[in-house]
């Protein structure tokens, strides 16, 4: 039963993905690893769509995965699965715990959590980097070091890394700009 599975997998993500933004990314890679319906190669495209459309990134990614796996109902089920733990946890906290974020245990847990979450996102980020710059398939055929990476992509990566750090525009601007450059230079 694919809907039940989508619900339970995204429920787990909603319960354990802490730290906002890209926190669901390591879980999505683990999900793609475990089930055949999600191709890890589409994850970077999903991030692009999620960042360029309204709504929280985590919710957008859940809808995207659910929809591409099992249609409209799949999208709804995955998204509801993702937000269900929030509803439960927040209502419990609002009812019973005052000054939750100043609680000793919460702060201590986050002291340990933050570096670990950073490591998880860094690992997922490396997968995204690999998918955008490396051409491992081509290298597998020719076995030439020069064929290991795509030169145009590396140049674009370096240029964008520089530009994003001196200008502070919304991510959409960079995503659209990169799309235009991709078409112009046939990356």
């Amino acid at each position: 039963m694919i809907y039940l599975l989508l619900f339970s997998e995204f429920f787990k993500m909603g319960l354990f993905a802490v730290g906002g933004g890209l926190a669901t990314l390591p879980f999505l890679y683990a999900f793609a690893d475990k089930y055949p319906w999600l191709d890890p190669a589409v994850l970077p495209d999903m991030i692009a769509v999620s960042e360029s459309t309204p709504g929280p990134i985590g919710v957008n990614m859940a809808t995207y995965v659910g929809y591409s796996t099992a249609g409209i109902l799949g999208g709804i089920v995955a998204t509801l699965g993702l937000v269900m733990p929030s509803i439960i946890v927040i209502i419990i906290i609002a009812k019973f715990l005052h000054r939750f974020n100043e609680n000793f245990y919460v702060q201590s847990a986050f002291y340990g959590l933050r570096p670990a979450v950073t490591a998880l996102i860094a690992l997922a980020g490396f997968e995204v980097f690999k998918a955008s710059v490396f051409t491992l398939e081509r290298y597998g055929v020719t076995k030439q070091i020069a064929h290991l990476v795509d030169m145009k992509s590396i140049l674009l990566f370096a240029a964008l890394l520089f530009i994003t750090n001196i200008t502070k525009k919304h991510p959409i601007v960079y995503i659209l700009g990169a799309a235009a450059l991709g078409i112009m230079f046939k990356i």
Partner: peptide, 26 residues
């Protein structure tokens, strides 16, 4: 082609997020 470019931009955005997180979380 557009998505090949976009993927590079996403990689840059993720790298920037990780660098920012490294600074604040460690």
């Amino acid at each position: 082609y557009a998505f090949s470019g976009i993927r590079v931009a996403v990689a840059v955005l993720v790298v920037n997020v990780v660098i920012k997180m490294l600074k604040t979380s460690i």
